[in-house]
Nucleic acid binder design. Structure first.
Lengths: 187, 187
DNA sequence: ATTATGGAGTGATCTTTATCACATGGAGTT
DNA sequence: AACTCCATGTGATAAAGATCACTCCATAAT
């Protein structure tokens, strides 16, 4: 699992064996079964997760107990309730397994230690944040410019493997439409 | 204008006079009139802008020539076509003045120079990127969980001064509804 | 003073989507 | 084999929003 993390980081910044040993020492590995909660809305202990294998959804549950999917996370993706993590507040969302999933996670304390010791890792996270922001802005733009059918087609284009692995009801909760409407689309 | 930038940066990281002199040397100041384009979709030269005073909109124009507002920028905000800036591609959006506006801008070359020389500035931009990402995710969540009226109320709550300064037709283009629908809401 | 112009409100109608209800079919369980 | 979950599809109806057309009003321009 740590090798996956190393390959992932080294796509952006190089690391010596010694440096990666230090990186590894600050992460912990954990495995979860399908439908398990990695964390649940309202919890205080917030971590940043790297998915080595499997599939997660980041979920906001509204007052009517409806689930809204803020994001998915597959192999090589990072996920967390980022505001809760970075400001150490209670989580407002839940991270739930759609498949059996292996993760590596880091606490904020260790994250800060890591960035202080290895500035290139801070640069790595900066790039991740930039591209996360760009992706979020594109998703916003997609809701502004496109109808449901077009947004679904864009999702298929951008993440074909995701669409294969996730039930349509979950894709509907990500796109912000009812599962019935998604079902009625003729692609 | 440079004092505004200094105060803004020092809210997150401290700078010596000498360090700020270096920062200043990498930015340029420019003033624009209402309705002017700071940059236009399709241009190659992309910069990152800091708004000292005034008001901007970041606009995507679709194939039917409809304007969709990706974001606004007021005093103390950063704005750009971030993907175009960071990857040095052609811009896919336009940055347009809703009021007379004074900006400071930096090129990617100077930005990289700045981060290399002053790592605390890279940390500053990292925080900006994190909170930009969090804000974008909240906007996505708002479209998933709330109807038009609620989203408009949330906008008023989060950016009351913006709502005062921007025509409702522009707020509609930001919220993703027609100006008629926004006009019919009873707040 | 008169004439554009841009922002905003509103009626009528059509389209899209949500909602509720029910049916089908496959996978896993007993 | 019978049963229970799920995921999915689909019909009927209601609600939300888009669109087009028109009006009013304030401000800027001539």
């Amino acid at each position: 699992m740590f090798e996956i993390l190393r390959n992932h980081i080294e796509k952006i910044v190089p690391l010596t064996d010694q440096e990666f040993e230090f990186v590894s020492s600050l992460f912990r590995a954990k495995s979860y079964k399908k439908n398990q909660f990695i964390f649940q809305e309202g919890e205080s202990l917030s971590r940043h997760y790297f998915v080595c294998g499997g599939l997660l959804k980041l979920v906001y549950t509204d007052v009517d107990a409806r689930e809204h999917i803020v994001g998915f996370a597959m192999e090589d993706w990072w996920e967390s309730d980022f505001e809760a993590f970075y400001t150490q507040q209670k989580t407002s969302m839940s991270l739930i397994c759609l498949e059996n999933t292996d993760v590596l996670y880091i606490t904020l304390e260790n994250y800060k230690e890591l960035c202080k010791t290895l500035p290139q890792i801070e640069h790595f996270f900066l790039e991740k944040a930039y591209f996360g922001f760009i992706a979020a802005q594109k998703r916003i733009l997609s809701t502004l410019t496109s109808n449901t059918k077009e947004r679904y087609q864009q999702l298929i284009e951008i993440h074909p493997s995701l669409v294969q692995r996730v039930p349509k009801s979950q894709l509907a909760a990500y796109l912000g439409v009812s599962r019935e409407t998604l079902s009625r689309l003729t692609i």
